[in-house]
Design a protein around this nucleic acid. Structure first.
Lengths: 159, 159
DNA sequence: GTTCAGATACTCGGATAGGGACTGTCCGAGTCCTATTGG
DNA sequence: CCAATAGGACTCGGACAGTCCCTATCCGAGTATCTGAAC
């Protein structure tokens, strides 16, 4: 099991956008050049973020992507779910239905205690991701690396 | 991101084995027939459990698989890691290294605050899985479905 | 000088190929059981 | 009757194809800007 690397791209890109003025749109090319990523593929991830309501897009000259809402209202879980989809990692295929005494009308995704145990872990994972907003991460970065905001703005302002 | 369905097979199989006397070995064919699973593919998953020290195998007639240690010493995390591998879901590819001011000698898997946030969630997930032992799950099942142990034993004893 | 229309260049969005991992299957190495034969 | 041996059947373990999703790319639809001319 391995998460798509698009998650990493999306997280860093959203964090970079959080340092820019809210009305500044950045096109895919500049966002990709920041980390030397393939622009067309990054664009695909950004589309998913737009569909999730995390980014807003604008076509044409002076167009690009910007944050659709405040960094305080964007959690790590929001970004991860936008890229990876809403389904949880462990999917219960209800093999108990094919076992001895299996009833077709029972929803074993709810009753199976193993599925419930896996769900408990998934909930803990989501709770931890939902507890971290983009604004908090940004503050942490500014505390540890004070020059990052200025460098980021300069990189996107240049040209 | 979706977990291999072999995890579900492995979990249920280990749980079934926990109801049998510790010296009873069950071959792949019977374990697969219990849930109508493809025997050869289930065997592949059981091999992984043997390599992880969760099951022990014995070839030849009267051979098969049995739990290698007590259900109290087998956690859900042990089974999941045996099938899925030890790596965590989010892998930090250190794209900060290719960004402005990226240093080749820095290990960004440790310093990147986004990677750290994702790691926090992964740790919470593993902590929750490690907190549930196979023995506790077994007791829960016996409490909710008292006839399950007898049915399981009968199914494996029959023939 | 101002305004309007056309052309242009730029950007997003979805549709289109390629590769790796999960899924599924098969056959060989090793082991235990059993039947037979000789004492 | 007992023991040894040879054969057979059974099981695990790793090696071999098929399929789906992630990766990567390209081109068309739409929009803001710029230029030029007309008023």
């Amino acid at each position: 099991m391995q998460m798509s690397q698009g998650v990493e791209w999306a997280l860093h890109t959203c964090l970079n956008l959080s340092w820019l003025p809210p009305d500044q749109a950045v096109p895919t090319g500049k966002l990709a050049a920041f980390y030397e990523l393939p622009a067309a593929y990054l664009n695909k991830q950004l589309q998913a973020l737009v569909r999730a309501g995390i980014l807003s897009s604008q076509p044409g000259p002076r167009g690009g992507f910007r944050l659709a809402r405040a960094p305080e209202d964007i959690t790590l879980l929001d970004v991860v779910l936008a890229i990876e989809g809403p389904d949880e990692a462990f999917v219960c295929n209800q093999i108990l239905r094919h076992g001895p005494g299996g009833r077709p009308e029972v929803d074993y995704r709810q009753t199976c205690l193993l599925a419930r145990g896996m769900r408990r872990a998934d909930i803990a994972w989501r709770r931890e991701l939902a507890a971290q907003t983009l604004a908090e991460i940004r503050e942490d970065v500014e505390r540890h690396f004070p020059e990052t905001p200025r460098n980021t703005r300069a990189r996107f302002a240049g040209q």
